[in-house]
Amino acid sequence: MTDHEAAAHSAGPAPLDRFVRLCVPLTGFTAYELRSTGMAQLYFDTAGREIGHRSLDAFLGVWEEAHQGGLGPSRLPALERELARALIYLWYTGAFPRIAPAAHAELRRDRPNQEFVASPESYPEGLVWRAFGGHPAGAKPPGFGTWGDEPPVLPTEAELAARIAAEDAGPGGAVAYDAGSYGSAGESGGSTPAHLLPGPRSSRAVSPSAVPPASSHPVRETSPEAGE
C-alpha cells in the first residue's frame, strides 16, 4: 500500500467507525467507552502502521465475518488471534505489544517486535484501569483518601455481553454472545488459572507484554482451522 493509499485508508469517519465497532466485542467495552478514550484514531493509525494497513484490513474482514457468525476471537486462525490480542492490548494499555514471534515473522514486519507506548496521552487512557474500577498510575487521580474506599462493584460478564449486544443490534438482530469462544470460565470467578497470570519479571527491563505466564498453557496448539 502506498502512502497515498494508507492516507486514504484511514481518512474519513467510515473506516474509523468500522474499526471502533469491531473493537467493541474484542475489548468488552462499548463504542461509547472506546470513543471516550479519545484514542480511536491514534490506535487505528498505530495498528495500521505496526501490522501494515493491508494486514489490518484483512484482519478486520476475517474478524467481522467470525463475529457475525457468532464466534469469538479464540476461534480465529493463529495469526488473526494474535492480532486480536495485540489490538486488545493496545486498547487496554495504550501500548502496542511484543507479539508472538511466529506472528511477527508471518507479517514480515519491518519494525522491531518490541512494546512501545503509542503516545504520552494513550497510557492514561488504557482500559485496563476501567476494567477493575481503578485509575491509571500518575493520571486521573480520584482524590484524597479515596484509596480507603471499598473497591467498586463491577458489571458481570453477562451484563457486559448484554450491553454490547444491545449496541450491536443491527438489521439482522443482535449477535448472541458465545461465552466459550471468548474464553469464558463462567461467572464463578475463583482462583485464576496460572497460565493466564503473569510470572515474575526476570528483570525490570522486560516489557510487560514480554513477561512469560506463571505457567505454560496447559493445552497444546490444536489447529483451529481443523477444529472448525
Binding site: P25, L26, T27, G28, F29, G72, P73, S74, A78, L79, R81, E82, A84, R85, A86, I88, Y89, Y92, P97, R98, I99, A100, P101, A102, A103, L127, V128, A131, F132, G133, L154, P155, T156, E157, A158, L160, A161, I164, Y177, A179, Y182, G183, S184, A185, E187, G189, T192, H195, L196, S209, A210, P212, P213, S216, H217, V219, R220, E221, T222
Partner: peptide, 25 residues
C-alpha cells in the same frame, strides 16, 4: 495469552471481550 509460547508460536486460548474484562476486573 499474548506473546506466544516458549517456542514463539501463537498461544491457543486466552480470554477476550466481556470474558476478559470481567476476569481482569
Amino acid at each position: 495469552g499474548l506473546g506466544g509460547d516458549s517456542d514463539g508460536e501463537v498461544n491457543p486460548d486466552g480470554r477476550y471481550g466481556p470474558a476478559l474484562r470481567s476476569a481482569l476486573g
